[in-house]
Design a protein around this nucleic acid. Structure first.
Lengths: 356, 356
DNA sequence: CTGAAAGCGCTTACAG
DNA sequence: CTGAAAGCGCTTACAG
């Protein structure tokens, strides 16, 4: 029995159908007549350092090339502790805003040799926290997260463990981690200024009921503006529940407007297109009297097309994604500096008046 | 030196900042006073089989629970050859159609304990082929792909290697692999029937120039219908280049319509919303004379809202995604049956007349 | 019932 | 310059 392979029935370990018989470092070594470590050294660019002859280096490289050798990333990850994998946790990948972020992040990550594991929290704290643990357990090198409010503890744990994390679109005020998002306060302030400049004074506000930091800051800009520029401001605010069917939400907006006939303008605090789906935009268009001035926060091309004369405050999606992935990779590469110089960005939003 | 740890300076192997000191199976074993294999056996539900005492089993489980132990997936993958990772390769994750697919797939995959590695081909054959290799190399258990035409060889290699693959939205006619997509031919035929029923006879057709199988089948339905129902059909077809700026594409459509003033209807073969971006819909709306009947293939809520009276042929996105992931997981689980009973689905599209 | 050992495919300090 | 060996964290056949 001596000399027999340890597992006589390898099928049980790895079904042959799945066993791709990929070329391993051993195969290359055998072909080149060297030991596997030499191959590893050469392929990791340490031939010089280890004073391996140039011709041997060339030979090994050539064979590896010919055989189409690619190091098994799972093994590399286990050995080195670096997976070249990034965890992307967004609210909902099917929402245009997050899908756009995901695409830009993917491109930038690929350029640096990183792949992306994505998942959606659906604004569910527990799901989000689980996701962090699971991805961590899968060995991702870092995280890009648009966290829901209840994810603060889990996120701070990551930061405490010096795991690279960059938050996007939201952040936790008390937490000294990196984040990138639109400057929500000034965005809404700018949009409000636009309305005031046009002479509107009775401005209503529609937001959600999630208590997300970005929504709070937007709302603060609204109430501040109203309080600053108007005497005895009568603030009409509608808080739509997040998990409500489209038709019902539209109904609530309709009622809100009917109950407040004195309004001459409405500020929508978020992208109802993304949340309620495309259908709702049309219904919303119908529900909103045409003599009402409208400003929307978020990337609402559709809204602008649907509702002539609407003004949008647009988030700089590309800039957010680019800055976030850059920050994350910088954290990954210059490990020592983490914690010393934090990076927190609020990027300016753009007020876009519809040209139509 | 005997008894000293092999690596005196572990920092160099794994920077402590990244070394999460996660609880390992060894820690649990030490706490429980057993050997690591026992822990592994218990946690993998093989206590019974190995006749480990119920009380020991309980104790180990309790400790693992208390310590928050999760097996390191990288190590499990390396050992078992199964990563519980699925590769999702789409044309462009930021396109609503693919983002919607991605969300449904994510949900279904999570239910089964799988995570998703996504990437976009951007319709670039070489990029797509690289992606297959890289994901394969990362040890994904299976693939969900919306391939570009030049990916056939790489896809068939996967199939030849019995790697689970399900194609979505496209397929390769010569290839005996699993796929799920809308029945493109009948979808367009249905849409055409709708136009003919309404009395339209001079129907133009706008498609892309990629030669993708789904586009070919759609076009065939168009030409067949024209040839079957009309005498001496004068087929006006516009092939828009894929990589063309929106404005230019709209311009080309405009010219096409001007050069063919006898047209009374136009059939759009794909989702120009997704391809050209939201802006284009408005421009397209403006470019299309209002007395022209329009049918669009794809999930065009926007189009329907923008262009009153438009008819859409909608792809059953949810059904496609659900069927695809189910098929893939079935391939993963019942490994033996692969190759014997292939699964190929063409799901019916839905013709949706605008109610507006 | 339990434990020692091999091995998944790599990387790297160390000894020659 | 090169090679033997350890070890990343697991799983599992096998020997007691």
């Amino acid at each position: 029995m001596v000399g027999m392979p340890y597992f006589t029935d390898t099928e049980q370990l790895m079904p042959s159908a799945l066993n791709m018989k990929r070329v391993s470092i051993k195969d290359i070594a055998a072909k080149a007549g060297v030991v596997p470590s030499t191959v590893s050294l050469v392929l990791n660019g340490k031939a010089r350092q280890m004073r391996i002859s140039a011709e041997l280096e060339e030979r090994v490289k050539k064979i590896a090339e010919e055989e189409g050798y690619m190091p098994n990333q799972t093994a590399v990850s286990l050995r080195t502790g670096r997976s070249k994998l990034l965890g992307l946790i967004v609210e909902d990948i099917s929402n245009v805003f997050f899908a756009s972020l995901a695409k830009i992040i993917e491109d930038k990550a690929n350029e640096r040799g990183f792949k992306i594991l994505y998942c959606s929290t659906d604004n569910d704290d527990e799901k989000g926290n689980d996701l962090i643990k699971v991805l961590h357990n899968r060995g991702v090198d870092g995280f890009l997260i648009t966290p829901s409010p209840g994810m603060q503890k889990e996120v701070s744990r990551l930061i405490a463990q010096h795991k690279p994390v960059v938050l996007m679109d939201r952040y936790f005020p008390g937490l000294s981690g990196a984040y990138v998002l639109a400057d929500n306060y000034s965005g809404v302030a700018d949009g409000m200024k636009h309305l005031l400049d046009k002479g509107y004074r009775n401005i209503g506000y529609v937001t959600n009921d999630l208590g997300q930091i970005q929504m709070i800051e937007r709302e603060k800009a609204f109430t501040d503006t109203m309080g600053r520029f108007l005497e005895a401001p009568d603030q009409k605010i509608l808080r739509l529940p997040y998990h409500v069917p489209t038709a019902e939400a539209v109904e609530m907006i309709s009622s809100f407007l009917k109950e407040n006939t004195d309004l001459d303008a409405v500020f929508f605090a978020t992208n109802y297109l993304g949340i309620f789906g495309l259908e709702s935009v049309g219904q919303l268009g119908l529900a909103v009297p045409s003599d009402l001035a409208i400003v929307c926060f978020d990337d609402h091309d559709i809204f602008r097309l649907m509702v002539p004369g609407i003004t949008c405050v647009r988030q700089p999606i590309e800039e957010i994604a680019t800055a976030a992935i850059d920050l994350l990779i910088r954290q990954l590469e210059e490990d020592e500096t983490i914690g010393e110089d934090m990076h927190q960005f609020k990027l300016p939003s753009l007020v876009i008046r519809n040209s139509t």
